[in-house]
Design a protein around this nucleic acid. Structure first.
Lengths: 205, 205
DNA sequence: GTCTATATTTGGATAGAC
DNA sequence: GTCTATCCAAATATAGAC
């Protein structure tokens, strides 16, 4: 008996329609803002009446959930994995990726990394991507010889600051994106210099 | 004829009621989020029916406008004005003030510095506070001998990054607030070192 | 100035025919 | 699976009596 994989044409069509709905949903939130997703408009866009959407998604939140999962998958699949030879370059690479990923789609950034949808909590997957990413940051930092426990917090602040300014004040441009390498060098210089100081010299607070 | 200032008791009462409404509006957005301001609930809180609010404000946007003006006034009145002797301390002071001001009231931060209310544009006053503040940043930076044109952008990215992380991941705490002084020293070290390098050494992009 | 009553729009979600 | 019809809730805003 030949091993022909069973194709379920009905399931395939259903998955295709789901994908089509999600694509339209992304287009809508990019155009009108993340919170302005309307099931009526969404249905019209894909040539349906609003109630028909419920054959594909249980609720509006379920659509956000699916969009979140898509965005999270895009993030982990695009994240640079292999550490380059220069450890400093490894840090730059992470920030370039993160800021670039966020700046490429503001709505996706808000959905994944900010909490702006009232009542929407992406549960486990949220921690998965952010903790996985934070772990990688820690590893690459250790490769640079940076062990200060505050270093990761300062590093993430730099990354989100560049992202926030880029999206808020120069969307579509590169005014803060082109500062990334300098910012990471600044961070690296400071942390490596600080590590050489005896702990007693650091002032108490 | 004695110079007794004319008191308009009616105008006083009206102003007091307006202030009462605004206080209730702030309480509501702090509790439910900036975008969740409901005129019905707001009216109930101050013991009115919803339509009565229109005797005090022309529209919901007018309430946001008044809230914006209040927040902007709070910002400029609390902003540190006199430059301390140590120029580096001057920079730290600015960031401490900005992050502290934002962290003290997340809803106010969103209204003043992020654009999250659809269709709400605070017009002239918005530029007034941010440009006035940016000007002060430039002055204090010059006092440190920092003249790099990118310095202000990098500095603001650090400030907003600390703010964003503090509000997003440790609201009410001080996990990023206590990194402010270190972050400013990091920035200062880097910019002063960079200034001593001959411009030719800086890589082209 | 404040109320009741209402207009109008828009939203998410459900019932049931086909 | 898709539709029509409908429900229900909430929103801003207006008209007009008192």
């Amino acid at each position: 008996m030949l091993d022909i994989p069973k194709r379920d044409r009905r399931a395939e069509r259903r998955a295709a329609t789901r994908a089509e709905i999600l694509d339209a949903a992304w287009a809508q939130v990019r155009a009108n803002g993340l919170a302005a997703l309307s099931l009526r408009d969404l249905a019209r866009t894909v040539g349906m009446q609003a109630p028909s959407l419920y054959s594909y998604f249980d609720s509006k939140h379920a659509i956000y959930d699916a969009m979140y999962a898509q965005g999270a998958r895009q993030f982990v699949e695009a994240e640079p994995s292999d550490q380059p030879g220069d450890p400093l370059e490894g840090l730059k690479q992470l920030v370039r990726f993160y800021v670039g990923f966020c700046a490429a789609d503001a709505a996706r950034y808000l959905l994944l990394f900010q909490r702006t949808i009232p009542g929407f909590e992406p549960s486990a997957e949220s921690f998965a991507i952010s903790e996985g990413s934070l772990e990688r940051v820690g590893q690459r930092m250790a490769a640079c010889g940076i062990t200060d426990p505050d270093a990761v917090d300062l590093f993430t602040a730099i990354g989100t600051g560049l992202t926030d300014q880029q999206l808020s004040n120069d969307p579509g441009g590169d005014r803060w994106i082109r500062l990334i390498d300098d910012a990471v060098e600044m961070f690296h210089d400071y942390m490596t210099k600080k590590a050489k100081q005896p702990p007693a010299r650091r002032r108490a607070r």
